[in-house]
């Protein structure tokens, strides 16, 4: 159950995102236009600072906020803004986050606009000023740049930064999956063929029942990983969630596109903004197999006779 503060935070974020993350804004983001108005609203209302301990929010609130962001496919790199502020402190400049790849840092959301980038490497982090940028995008058209850093220094992050970023994608996907289910239900109720809404056809009902089951599972898995924050099972719970939610993404996106027919295949329809983000986020910070291997390796070490205990003593 969400407490009142969290509920207020999520509700006001949802209102802000609904206003600031319209279809027009999403289209612009894909053309490389930064959603500055939404960014300003996020900063003015202090949403980028909720991960800073002194602000009085629970760490879990960060991820409740990201679920809401996923629901609206928000174009600002909110996960990076919040987690960078948490680890670097309030700095006034724009800090994004990426993963070290050789001499460079890859997968940096809006690296082209970042003053500094926090770079993850082997469970640790370092930070530096951006001196060179190669722009790129993910499959959803979200900027994912490769940057070179200078004046790099180590920075202590003691809560598993890679797992935290993976969990950010879990939360974004959980919210986005729920939105895609809603889109499917709405469309099936509105679209008429053979003289009745297609939602009255058993084939469509069963397809959406499967979608609802996957979305419910994804949400429960995401909540479990969020609840494990700060606990000794955090790494395993994130692994289970990223793997499980990633599997749900493939099933849900495929089925809801099918329900939408050719309409959902057009650029004009909003569905693809959400499904393409799902397809992108499941591969960021470790895909399903990456995390399955981590979780499976952990269980293999525990041994066959302790597998049940691991499953049953979860929260």
């Amino acid at each position: 159950m969400m407490n009142e503060i969290t509920q207020m935070l999520v509700d006001s974020a949802a209102r802000m995102f609904a206003d600031g993350s319209t279809k027009a804004v999403l289209d612009d983001v894909e053309l490389g236009v930064y959603p500055q108005a939404l960014h300003d609203m996020v900063v003015e209302n202090g949403f980028d600072r909720i991960g800073i301990a002194a602000e009085g929010f629970a760490t879990t609130d960060v991820f409740e906020l990201l679920k809401s962001a996923g629901r609206f496919a928000v174009g600002v790199p909110l996960a990076e803004m919040v987690l960078a502020a948490r680890w670097v402190g309030e700095s006034g400049d724009f800090v994004s986050i990426g993963v070290v790849e050789g001499a460079r840092v890859a997968q940096v959301p809006w690296g082209r606009r970042a003053d500094r980038v926090l770079a993850l490497v082997d469970g640790a982090a370092r930070i530096g000023h951006v001196c060179h940028v190669t722009t790129g995008t993910n499959i959803a058209g979200e900027p994912r740049d490769t940057v070179t850093l200078e004046a790099v220094e180590e920075i202590a992050v003691d809560e598993g930064p890679f797992e935290m970023l993976a969990l950010s994608r879990v939360a974004l996907m959980a919210g986005c999956l729920e939105r895609v289910l809603d889109l499917g239900l709405t469309y099936a109720g509105e679209r008429e063929q053979f003289g009745r809404p297609i939602s009255k056809f058993q084939a469509i009902q069963h397809a959406l029942a499967v979608v609802a089951a996957e979305v419910a599972a994804a949400k429960r898995a995401a909540d479990a990983a969020i609840d494990a924050l700060g606990g000794e099972r955090f790494a395993q719970e994130v692994a289970a969630a990223k793997a499980r939610v990633g599997e749900a993404v493939g099933i849900v996106a495929e089925a809801v596109h099918q329900v939408h027919g050719a309409m959902g295949f057009t650029h004009e329809h909003e569905l693809h903004h959400f499904t393409r983000r799902l397809w992108a986020w499941r591969d960021e910070y470790g895909n399903e197999v990456f995390w399955q291997r981590r979780l499976g390796g952990h269980l293999a070490k525990l041994g066959a006779d302790h597998v049940w205990d691991f499953v049953a003593t979860q929260s």
Partner: peptide
């Protein structure tokens, strides 16, 4: 899990992890 032992090959670990991720979620 018993058959695989404590030093799984990558695909074996992935299979264990995939099953576990579903089981943990269903149980919750």
């Amino acid at each position: 899990v018993r058959l695989i032992g404590d030093d799984p090959a990558p695909h074996e670990a992935a299979a264990i992890g995939r099953i576990a991720s579903h089981l943990m979620t269903l149980r919750r």
